[in-house]
Simulated scan of single mutants.
Amino acid sequence: MVGMAAYAALGAAVSTGTGVASDRSSGWLRQLRVTALPPAGAVVARAASGAVTVLPAVAAVLAAGALVNGVRLALWQWAALAGLLWLGSLPFTLLGLGNGYRLTAQATGVVNMVTVLGLSVVGGLWFPAEALPAWLSPVAAYTPASPFAALGRAVLGIPTDGWALAVLPGWAVVFGTYAVASYGRSARAV
């Protein structure tokens, strides 16, 4: 359930970039640039609005786990799981925004879909990373999806070595830098 909720959050977060690419093609970003809003502010504001789409996706999977599959957790575990997956999706929102500022709407959709699938498989959201080939399994810990799911599993009592707390913020910085740089690049392309 945690892996599927993380997958839903990842997909919803990354898809925020498709709307940005559409805004860019319609000329909305050109209008936004005449305001005093700095590039980092524009990215943060868009990431905050994009984060709204993640919570319903996570809630739907958690509700299915409870109602269809009979998953029982304490109330605080449900809330912590939803909250951590929601907050932990920020790096993926930033990645989607970076793609949206850099690519056309059509290309953004394709790149985001391939990214979500790749991160989900290599990051162990669909099956344990240990089931990957021996050469690929160690890479999973360094992907953003693996520590993201580890946050959710920690709420369920599955131990994590704290690696998620170091890796996920690092990916947020990398993807945030990418999003801001892509926003600036899109300004030069207009």
Score class of each variant (00 low, 15 high):
residue 160 T to F: 14
residue 95 L to C: 11
residue 32 L to W: 09
residue 52 V to P: 06
residue 9 A to R: 12
residue 168 L to V: 05
residue 104 T to P: 00
residue 121 V to F: 15
residue 56 P to D: 08
residue 8 A to F: 04
residue 140 A to E: 09
residue 31 Q to C: 06
residue 160 T to R: 07
residue 28 W to H: 12
residue 33 R to A: 15
residue 45 A to E: 12
residue 6 A to P: 02
residue 145 A to M: 10
residue 15 S to D: 15
residue 165 L to M: 12
residue 86 W to Q: 14
residue 149 A to C: 00
residue 127 F to T: 00
residue 93 T to G: 11
residue 111 V to S: 10
residue 23 D to A: 04
residue 116 V to W: 02
residue 121 V to P: 02
residue 4 M to S: 14
residue 77 Q to G: 01
residue 9 A to V: 14
residue 51 A to K: 02
residue 77 Q to L: 10
residue 147 P to L: 05
residue 61 V to A: 01
residue 188 R to K: 09
residue 180 V to R: 07
residue 46 R to A: 09
residue 46 R to Y: 07
residue 13 A to L: 08
residue 6 A to N: 08
residue 169 P to N: 10
residue 170 G to M: 11
residue 137 S to T: 14
residue 167 V to E: 04
residue 157 G to F: 15
residue 182 S to R: 02
residue 183 Y to E: 15
residue 139 V to S: 09
residue 116 V to R: 04
residue 39 P to M: 02
residue 76 W to K: 03
residue 145 A to C: 11
residue 188 R to W: 10
residue 111 V to I: 06
residue 118 G to A: 14
residue 99 N to I: 06
residue 88 G to T: 08
residue 122 V to Q: 05
residue 164 A to M: 02
residue 166 A to H: 13
residue 26 S to Y: 15
residue 67 L to N: 01
residue 189 A to V: 11
residue 101 Y to S: 06
residue 166 A to G: 13
residue 135 W to Q: 04
residue 111 V to R: 08
residue 111 V to C: 05
residue 142 Y to V: 09
residue 6 A to K: 06
residue 6 A to I: 06
residue 52 V to F: 05
residue 38 P to A: 15
residue 92 F to S: 01
residue 11 G to F: 07
residue 140 A to C: 04
residue 72 R to G: 01
residue 72 R to Y: 01
residue 121 V to C: 05
residue 55 L to I: 13
residue 172 A to M: 07
residue 181 A to K: 08
residue 97 L to P: 00
residue 85 L to A: 01
residue 6 A to S: 15
residue 122 V to N: 04
residue 84 L to F: 01
residue 61 V to F: 01
residue 120 S to I: 03
residue 130 E to M: 03
residue 178 Y to G: 05
residue 62 L to T: 09
residue 174 V to I: 14
residue 129 A to M: 03
residue 44 V to M: 09
residue 87 L to E: 05
residue 89 S to P: 06
residue 165 L to S: 08
residue 109 G to A: 05
residue 75 L to I: 10
residue 41 G to E: 04
residue 153 R to G: 03
residue 117 L to C: 05
residue 151 L to T: 09
residue 15 S to V: 13
residue 150 A to N: 07
residue 66 A to Y: 05
residue 92 F to C: 03
residue 80 A to K: 04
residue 3 G to L: 13
residue 60 A to C: 11
residue 96 G to N: 13
residue 159 P to F: 02
residue 41 G to K: 03
residue 155 V to G: 09
residue 16 T to F: 00
residue 15 S to G: 13
residue 118 G to I: 06
residue 172 A to W: 11
residue 90 L to I: 05
residue 130 E to A: 15
residue 78 W to N: 07
residue 58 V to Y: 11
residue 100 G to I: 11
residue 63 A to E: 04
residue 15 S to K: 15
residue 25 S to H: 07
residue 62 L to H: 10
residue 15 S to T: 15
residue 138 P to H: 00
residue 186 S to C: 08
residue 167 V to Y: 09
residue 184 G to Y: 00
